[in-house]
Design a protein around this nucleic acid. Structure first.
Length: 706
DNA sequence: TGTATTCAGTAGTAT
DNA sequence: ACTACTGAATACACA
């Protein structure tokens, strides 16, 4: 594997001159994808007519212009959905996905055909628009999944269960927007994605990833809708639970059969932000309880523990990275107060597992300084219960204790967190640090330069700048003078022009996550009245994560983060020097610049998201050179299965638009995992342009990039 | 089929 | 930081 790596990227050199060390060339050329195959490139302006038709994300779509298959339903179609007065039926059905590069799994046509699907919203209004059994796809796929599991009983059980659940939710009431109808709509808009999940082999890495993506999408969208409803509908809402319940009811999950040991498709070190995520991928079934176990299936058999979550609710001992002293469950009751724990349920299962010696999955829940609200769950692999005992807790009551020891030979997971914590507290120093702050203070947090792989002393010289230089304001898509939201843009303020431009919703959630994947993100800008901490200025406040530029094994320098990064989070923008097309030509020639961001090239829709999402769409060409000046983004390597993507961000500026390129996390990214995005593939190649051998190592590697 | 049980997560209030 | 409070899956008891 490794023997042929590095050929194209590293002209072997042992220069140690710090100012001009080695030109590593992380090979950069970005290419946006355009949905329409008939307009591969676009040189015309938005008003020009052909390639760029200005379409509001919410439609209506001019004839001949395919909608982008929005990641979410638009606000407009949402409101109309009750009357089923949405865009022509063919457009809502993802039968002809934008991307011609259909993901590995073949797209499955709904059994009920397209019409059944579209009509279901009307048919099911009594049941709150729920897409139930009649919606075409659920029957076949779910049966197949059940059949795969080989549990006949499980199937019939689940089916009857599903029906009652659907009916139950049919009785629920809501004030403004019906969340169930919304959920049904979201699911419909995600049809392709749902098919993808359901057609994946149970437990494949993809089925896990897609399941989490759908969950994330559902959760954020439900939260977004909840957000704008808040005025009418007070009280704490739980989009995490809501989204989870919908997925469970629809059977959009993987590894639904409990198992001891490895869960296929879930890797050690994977991180999760909600308990439901653990549930949906089959890692840990209970939505709250900390011990998951297989109950006794017959009189003789004994319950066995399969997984535990250690998240600080009890007095667990987590000092050692490889040993966990876990407390049993029970003994706390809101009404009755504390009591002795009993040897039953999870405690009994752990006890039996200790004797049986079976592997128990351990999920470590921890507080991350980066995400003060909520916890992060780290899958830390398999442990075995060495011994157990009963002891008196602080409360004075008996508590069961289980001593779990991590099986050797597993990749680090929780230990990485511990290490980072130690580097942070300075009780241990980071090995291989070349520069504590590569940015020389240009960013608000330092970005260190590290090499613990070889002797290279740093990348080729460049000047660090945190944002774009020579920014050329471009013509606005719609004329506007910015928003008047003095106190910051509020999610339920439908009069805010910046919110309107985004299709009626703030593009970011309250946690500053990208709410949905639009082709363009409209942020507030210099001409807006809102303050700098406005929720619609996410990409403008600099780095939020402790990033480091590090030496990769075979791809030169790369970028990674000490902090875990949640899917949808803004990472950084692509900084550099904005250059014009003439200069671009020069740079594309002999003076090849591998740090170019070129918005005008064709970006082949790659397997970033399995479903159809809006491809990035840039209103006017943008070329950025980061060779001489740039920021951390210039170090991000290419990967064919990336964890980061980019979107154009337009910042409102006096009837002009400041166009930036912003990067967002596609999925949850554990600390110290390399950050990569898809450079895209240029088809056809320009004259003189070379394909570059791809070293990403992904199983889906295309073999080259451009 | 019903229900007790459970190491969530959020918002609101107090410190 | 603490508190209240709603929340949903599951095992298991029960009919």
């Amino acid at each position: 594997m490794e023997h042929h790596f590095g050929q194209g990227t590293t002209p072997a050199s042992e220069s140690f001159d710090k100012t001009r060390v080695l030109n590593v060339k992380p090979l950069r050329t970005l290419v946006p994808v355009f949905p329409s195959p008939s307009n591969p490139a676009s040189s015309s302006t938005p008003q020009g007519g052909a390639p760029f038709v200005c379409v509001s994300p919410s439609g209506p779509f001019p004839s001949g212009v395919a909608p982008f298959y929005p990641f979410f339903i638009s606000s407009e179609s949402q409101r109309l959905s009750e009357q089923n007065a949405q865009t022509p039926s063919g457009q809502r059905v993802p039968a002809a996905p934008v991307s011609t590069a259909v993901p590995i799994n073949s797209f499955r046509t709904p059994t009920g055909a397209a019409n059944g699907d579209v009509g279901s919203s009307q048919k099911n209004t009594r049941s709150r628009g729920w897409v139930t059994e009649e919606d075409g796809y659920s029957n076949v796929e779910i049966e197949e999944i059940d059949a795969d599991e080989g549990t006949g009983t499980g199937r019939s059980k689940r089916k009857s269960n599903k029906k009652t659940k659907a009916r139950q939710s049919g009785g629920s009431v809501s004030v403004d927007v019906d969340p169930d109808a919304v959920a049904a709509d979201i699911l419909k808009s995600l049809n392709a994605l749902v098919f993808d999940v359901l057609s994946q082999p149970e437990g494949s890495r993809d089925s896990v990833a897609y399941t989490l993506m759908i969950y994330e999408v559902m959760r954020r969208k439900l939260g977004q809708i909840e957000d704008s409803n808040r005025a009418a509908n007070s009280g704490a809402k739980r989009p995490d639970l809501k989204a989870g319940a919908i997925m469970m009811n629809k059977g959009i999950r993987t590894n639904s059969k409990k198992r001891i040991g490895v869960v296929p498709g879930v890797e050690i070190g994977d991180i999760f932000f909600f308990r439901f995520e653990l549930c949906l991928v089959g890692l840990h079934a209970p939505s709250m309880a900390g011990i998951d176990y297989i109950g006794k299936t017959s009189q003789e058999e004994e319950p066995l523990a399969v997984s535990i979550v250690s998240s600080g609710g009890y007095e667990d001992n987590v000092e050692d990275g490889d040993v966990l002293i876990y407390s049993g469950q029970g003994g706390v009751n809101r009404d009755k107060g504390a009591s002795d724990q009993k040897l039953e349920r999870g405690n009994l299962a752990l006890e039996k597992s200790a004797h049986r010696g079976n592997e128990v999955r351990v999920i470590r829940g921890l507080r991350d300084p980066q995400h003060p609200t909520g916890k992060i769950y780290v899958y830390d692999g398999l442990y075995k219960i060495q011994n157990s005992w009963v002891e008196k807790a602080k409360s004075g009551f008996n508590v069961f204790k289980y001593n779990l020891v991590r099986l050797p030979g597993q990749p680090q997971a929780y230990m990485i967190w511990k290490s980072i914590q130690q580097w942070t507290e300075k009780s241990a120093s980071r090995a291989g640090v070349i520069l504590p702050d590569l940015t020389s203070g240009a960013e608000n947090i330092p970005v260190c330069l590290v090499n613990d792989v070889d002797n290279e002393k740093g990348p080729a010289y460049f000047t660090y700048i945190p944002t774009l230089k020579n920014l050329r304001p471009t013509a606005p898509v719609e004329s506007s003078t910015g928003c008047p939201c003095v106190g910051g843009c509020q999610p339920n303020n439908f009069n805010c022009p910046c919110i309107q431009k985004n299709g009626g919703y703030l593009p970011y959630s309250s946690a500053s996550l990208l709410a949905d994947l639009k082709s363009v993100i409209y942020e507030c800008g210099p001409s807006c009245q809102c303050p700098s901490n406005c929720r619609n200025r996410v990409s403008q406040s600099g780095l939020k994560f402790r990033l480091e530029v590090f030496r990769t094994k075979n791809k030169g320098w790369g970028l990674r983060s000490w902090d875990s990064i949640r899917a949808g989070t803004f990472l950084c923008e692509y900084a550099g020097e904005v250059v014009d097309s003439a200069r671009m030509e020069e740079l594309g020639g002999d003076n090849e610049d591998d740090y170019i961001f070129d918005s005008t090239r064709i970006y082949q829709q790659l397997e970033v998201f399995p479903g159809d999402t809006e491809a990035p769409k840039i209103p006017s060409p943008l070329y950025i050179s980061a060779k001489n000046e740039g920021n951390v983004a210039r170090f991000m390597n290419h990967c064919c299965s990336p964890n980061v993507l980019w979107r154009p961000v337009i910042r409102e500026n006096k009837n002009e638009s400041d166009l930036h390129i912003a990067f967002y996390a596609i999925r949850h990214i554990p600390p110290m995992m390399e950050l990569t995005y898809d450079y895209g593939a240029v088809l056809p190649l320009k004259v003189g342009q070379r394909k570059k051998k791809c070293l990403c190592g992904s199983v889906k590697c295309r073999g080259y990039f451009c």
